[in-house]
Nucleic acid binder design. Structure first.
Lengths: 228, 228
DNA sequence: CGCCCTACGATTGTCTAACAAGTACACACG
DNA sequence: CGTGTGTACTTGTTAGACAATCGTAGGGCG
């Protein structure tokens, strides 16, 4: 029994479950019974039901009619869908930022944080990496686009929680490509930035797919040239 | 008392309310009390509550804690946010379609339906217009992008329900621009298509803003040249 | 011995009833 | 006239209950 209470009991429970899913405590396909959730948080069943339905709406949990809610199991095809959606959104974001030569401070800061990482823990790069990409999207100043991207980020984090030993890409490479992206934006080269982003996300996508048991596409390979 | 029952009572009620909002039967800021909804559909209050919360999650209704849910009131700034979001999404969609020279059949059909419209009712153009744009997005084959665009379409329809006498743009102009967009896609000219779309949506956006009492931006003006 | 059908347990969908808590508005008081 | 209080309305949450449905295990039949 965990006593939580912030603004709304439902919201608090949903938050807690969300955190437990992201941390990997609740693995994919783990069943979440309404009664079970209700008793573990010491609330009534309708309250637990509301929290579960909120998470289902977010896409973190899945459930059919009359069936127990389960932690979403994102297969390789979902990973591709998510990363392609990211690419679609961010490509256009980069073009717009480039046309106004807007380089968000927060993005620079996030990438510096990646550069400062010397720890071997590969999981530590996820947070500043997400912050880098999110800050670019947020720089557009469009509420709805930011919200959409946020939901994608949630699903990406869900994917990440599945692959524990992710040593997919070298931190140095990530940081270098981010840097290059910012330079292209500053130079007003939107097309080039969009293309580099496609490679950047495509590589991460196919490597992630490969570690999840899917078949990696050709984008998984490192680029032959990486002119900084 | 309206008896409805399809797959789920909650879903059925939510659908009905959604339709009533879109039709304009429920105007902006109209209050929807849980008890009121419950009695009018002859269901229990928790059921009505669930339906209302579903619509709140969709953005059709808004409500604060302990306050009655109301039909969302989209002001000029929201309209700009929505239409800019559309432009961000669709610009990139056009580029991708152009790079593979993919012209969706459904888009062609939808635009033909617009051309066939000779009725004076300006509201009839909304449905095929939405279908045109939606079919372009769906042609990408990305579940998440399609879902995001769907929620934007819902908000656009909500805006439309507010302006009854919308005679914002000439049907012929809309149809001609759509035609030009398809031609640019077929020619692989993604940049040009994206730019034309920006003008197309920008004009609709600022005219809509103007009719809602906001101050129209310069995009409201007709283009000086429209080479078909 | 294997397959299909049935029956049971578990779980969700929905309802009734009720109390607590918060908001908003009106009225009275200073 | 401004402020404070109180009351009515609404929402948040709980409890218990029943029907509908799904999954599974077991028994009957070929």
């Amino acid at each position: 029994m965990s006593r939580v209470s912030a603004v709304s009991i439902v919201e608090a429970i949903a938050s807690d479950i969300r955190a437990r899913v992201f941390s990997g405590e609740l693995p994919a396909l783990h069943a979440l019974t309404e009664t079970e959730v209700a008793s573990s948080y010491d609330v009534a069943r309708p309250t637990a039901k509301a929290a579960i339905e909120k998470l289902v709406a977010e896409g973190l949990l899945v459930r059919g009619v009359h069936k127990t809610a389960r932690v979403a199991d994102l297969g390789p095809e979902s990973v591709r869908d998510i990363y392609l959606a990211r690419a679609y959104l961010e490509s256009e974001v980069l073009r717009r930022l480039a046309s106004s030569r807007t380089v968000p401070d927060e993005a620079v800061r996030a990438n510096n944080d990646i550069a400062a990482l010397k720890t071997g823990a590969p999981l530590d790069v996820v947070e500043p990496d997400m912050r880098f990409h999110t800050s670019l999207v947020d720089a557009l100043g469009n509420q709805r686009i930011s919200k959409m991207y946020l939901s994608l980020v949630g699903e990406v984090r869900l994917c990440m929680s599945r692959v524990q030993s992710l040593h997919l890409l070298d931190t140095t490479l990530i940081q270098a490509e981010h840097q290059k992206l910012l330079e292209l934006i500053a130079a007003g080269k939107g097309d080039a930035a969009a293309q580099l982003l496609d490679e950047h996300l495509g590589r991460a996508r196919e490597r992630l797919v490969a570690t999840m048991g899917g078949e990696a596409g050709p984008e998984a390979e490192l680029p032959s040239k990486l002119t900084g």
